[in-house]
Design a protein around this nucleic acid. Structure first.
Length: 568
RNA sequence: CGGAGUGUAGCGCAGUCUGGUAGCGCACCUGGUUUGGGACCAGGGGGUCGAAGGUUCGAGUCCUUUCACUCCGACCA
């Protein structure tokens, strides 16, 4: 392809809403164009990169025995009602009506559609297992789209679904997909980490996320400094944590504690380690059909509440803060709440570290009073892990210490079980002629997000640095002076020769000055550049490698062979 | 939805407080000079000032309403 025929609107200026390198460079280098909040057009270069990334994904999945299909983007709402997700998915689901007033949604993910497809065509265990995927547009009406392709509303995703007769077979496929994903992300040149994750709105258990390590990542991931353990903060666990300070001895009694509403103040007041204090957090849990309830979460004062864990424990769709008036109306005293005295009708969930705990101090749910000498041994309530793992906590698998790092979620694999097949009535006949629901797994890759992730990890101050399998072209031939016939003719012949060897080559035949072309080359970030310039007269040209911008002088003798050899 | 802010040429902005013929930089077009690191000179094209209503002799500017977008928190591939 020649630059003079290619639409590449590069700019010197940065769009004012772009803050991340991936967003800035993808726009400036003419890969994408913003058209609305979270909506982007892919220009020729962007489309080429997208296609190459897609090809890698497809090749590896096909090798693993998965089959590609393409499902409708517009989905009848009835399917979503059957699975119970029409309400659960919330406002992210873009709903609309057709002319006959029927409800539809734009698919944010396609469990329902895929189950429906298989339900109608697979009847026997003999046809299983089956792994179907598609690479298609998704739409999620994000609360706050940002960061360019990183969090768009419309995005390209590969979503795969597998169907099995047993949990064992599904687990086998789950592991196969984990290996396949590793190959995909490795081929794309990404540094990533596989972490344990929360399953979120998709449902299921034992899910794993593939995180591209990058400062700008939106997820906090917890990693061990000495073993392979890694988990999203939403699902991270730690080694049991004790307290070296002696517990405060006291008999159960009320204690006056005026103006002592925070853990710090309380710790100071009693001269007691926060480990022996009970932190009680009130949240409003939003449930299906617009219902909600107030839930109290109790944990040790030395710990922080992890909201996703809390949301799951409360079986809620979402937790929101409660206003002071609401608290009062519910009979809760802000700053003095506790798990021992809870008003009627309010659910209490305690962190596991409080199970059977004694020698505690907690709120009395009475203004200016706490209770000392609290023993929760007899407390009857739900216990669940609610704690946000902190940096420095112990690893649950070894003696290492846990720390935080940031990651971009580019893949997520789930062991679904019968979460969708059951409510949607997707059954098959097993060996005994019994009708049973499919055991399923589901596997996603954010394909358009991958472009952003690659640039987040591979760029410098001058622009993009595409990895070999994600670059829109393998090589750019830069003609220093396009009006120089000798240079131009040589460039054309080497261009044809290299293309004949199967390389994707871009020829910069524009009449721009040399400096402009080099800046453009660096901004676009194709892995190699071949500079045909004034040294051509001496029988030499230069090969520049985008990563590190190292130049190498090559003889024009046998050039195509030499270049092709270096690129492969 | 909560808080903050912005809508003026393709992009980045000034002009708005204090009403009086629509500006600058980049990009674009023409001619010329230049040609190994985002050149220079001269000329040129391009705007329902987000939308609707109002005040006024006169509104980009003042008032009301509305829409869109961005930034800071809760969602996710």
């Amino acid at each position: 392809m020649r630059v003079t025929q290619l639409l590449v609107p590069t700019t010197k200026e940065t769009p004012n809403d772009a803050t991340l390198p991936s967003h800035i460079f993808l726009v400036r280098a003419g890969f994408i164009q913003g058209v609305g909040s979270g909506l982007y057009n892919f220009l020729p270069l962007g489309k080429r990169s997208l296609d190459r990334v897609q090809r890698v994904v497809k090749e590896e999945l096909d090798k693993a025995g998965a089959q590609e299909v393409s499902l409708g983007f517009v989905t009848p709402a009835s399917l979503w009602r059957e699975s119970g997700r029409f309400d659960k998915y919330g406002k992210e689901l873009l709903r609309f009506k057709d002319r006959k007033d029927n409800d539809f949604v734009l698919g944010p993910t396609h469990e329902e559609m895929m189950v429906n497809l298989v339900k109608g065509s697979v009847k026997s265990y003999k046809e299983l297992p089956l792994n179907l995927y598609q690479i298609n547009l998704k739409f999620r009406d994000e609360i706050r789209p940002r960061f360019g392709l990183m969090r768009g509303r419309e995005f390209l995703m590969k979503d795969g679904y597998s169907f099995h007769v047993s949990h064992e077979d599904m687990y086998r496929e789950f592991c196969l997909m984990e290996e396949t994903y590793k190959k995909i992300f490795t081929r794309l040149g990404l540094e990533f980490r596989i972490v344990e994750a929360d399953s979120g709105a998709i449902g299921g258990s034992g899910s794993k996320e593939f995180m591209v390590l990058a400062e700008s990542g939106e997820d906090t991931i917890v990693v061990c400094d000495s073993c392979e353990y890694g988990a999203n903060i939403e699902a991270a666990v730690r080694a049991p944590k004790g307290c070296e300070v002696e517990p405060p001895e006291a008999n159960y009694s009320l204690f006056r504690t005026p103006d002592t509403t925070t853990i710090e103040q309380l710790s100071e007041f009693f001269k007691v380690d926060p480990y022996y204090l009970v932190k009680t957090v009130a949240k409003r849990a939003l449930l299906d059909d617009g219902e909600s309830k107030i839930v109290l979460f109790a944990l040790r004062g030395s710990d922080e509440l992890q909201e996703t864990k809390a949301t799951n424990a409360a079986k809620a769709n979402e937790l929101v803060d409660i206003s002071a008036e609401e608290l009062e109306k519910a009979g809760l005293i802000a700053g003095y709440m506790g798990p021992v005295i809870v008003p009627e009708g309010i659910e209490l969930i305690c962190d596991e570290t409080l199970k059977g705990a004694a020698n505690l101090i907690c709120g009395a749910n009475e203004k200016d009073y706490h209770i000392v000498g609290v023993d929760l041994g007899a407390l009857e309530c739900k216990f669940s892990d609610l704690v946000a793992v902190a940096e420095g906590d112990g690893c649950p698998h070894c003696n290492g210490k846990l720390g935080y790092t940031k990651g971009i979620e580019v893949g997520h694999i789930f062991q679904l079980g019968t979460r969708y097949s059951d409510p949607l009535g997707a059954n098959f006949l097993d060996e005994n002629g019994k009708s049973v629901p499919f055991i399923m797994g589901t596997y996603g890759i954010g394909v358009s997000r991958l472009l952003a992730a690659i640039i987040e990890q591979h760029h410098d101050e001058n622009g993009c640095i595409w990895t070999r399998e994600s670059a829109p072209f393998d090589l750019t031939i830069i003609v220093s002076n396009a009006k120089d016939e000798e240079q131009m003719n040589f460039a054309l012949s080497i261009y044809e020769e290299l293309r004949g060897k199967g390389l994707e080559v871009l020829l910069d035949d524009s009449k721009e000055r040399f400096g402009f072309k080099m800046k453009n080359y660096e901004l676009i970030g194709i892995p190699y550049g071949l500079i045909i310039g004034k040294n051509l007269a001496d029988g030499s040209v230069e090969l520049v490698r985008r990563e590190g911008l190292v130049k190498e002088t090559l003889s024009t003798e046998n050039l195509a062979e030499v270049v092709a050899g270096k690129l492969c």
